[in-house]
Design a protein around this nucleic acid. Structure first.
Length: 195
DNA sequence: CCTCAGATGGACT
DNA sequence: GTCCATCTGAGGC
């Protein structure tokens, strides 16, 4: 499997967001690879987007990783108990990111199940299987992604994203982003992409 | 299938 | 003190 390069992440955020769909998110823990396919993302673009944490060039300890070079992880705590994983995009000095909102488990689902629910996958009920990793907080739990992974280089071996072996043309759906009602006109931007 | 309340802590003002 | 790029379990249909 071939890792996505820095130049992949350095492009326009809306392009990167859509190109991330179908790609493989790889998390390596204790020498084991947990692999998921990305199925849902959202774009956040500071220049014009009141929902972006770095809107208006707001640079704080939390947001500063978005101001750095592309291809790094931006992980933050939300609602006091969950984490969200983002991928930093665009040139250095242009604070933008893509939120990974949903993934499908591909490999090592047993380990993910223990991280997510503390149980083996075959012990999960239908509801738990359906909601295994279809949300930003859920996938971070299943892949053990916390603030420790903030600012991590996505070209490293512990957390990275790969191309698929074959080229597949996906049917990409678009919609409004979730839970950003406060963002005024930006709440209606069609910057959520999913398969 | 749906809605709703509650959990919970850090970033920011 | 207020605001969250969320999830869960309980209860209703």
């Amino acid at each position: 499997m071939e890792k996505l390069t820095k130049s992949f992440y350095e492009r326009d955020t809306l392009t990167v967001a859509q190109d991330l769909l179908g790609k493989l998110l790889v998390r390596e823990i204790d020498g084991e690879k947990l692999i998921c396919q990305i199925t849902e993302v959202e774009a956040y673009i500071a220049d014009i987007d009141k929902a972006c944490h770095a809107y208006g060039g707001k640079k704080t300890e939390r947001t500063k990783v978005m101001f750095g070079p592309a291809g790094y992880a931006y992980v933050y705590l939300i609602y006091g108990m969950y984490h969200c994983l983002n991928v930093v995009t665009e040139a250095e000095g242009t604070p933008c990111a893509v939120l990974i909102r949903g993934v499908k488990p591909i490999k090592n689902i047993e380990k993910m199940s223990v991280l997510r629910y503390g149980k083996k996958y075959n012990e999960l009920n239908a509801y738990q299987r359906k909601n295994f990793s279809n949300g930003p907080g859920k996938l971070c739990k299943a892949l053990q992604i916390t603030k420790k992974e903030n600012k991590m280089d996505l070209l490293s071996d512990a957390l990275y994203i790969c191309k698929e072996n074959e080229i597949i043309n996906y049917d990409i759906k678009k919609g409004k982003r979730i839970n950003i009602d406060y963002a005024e006109e930006a709440k209606d931007f069609l910057w959520r992409f999913y398969l």
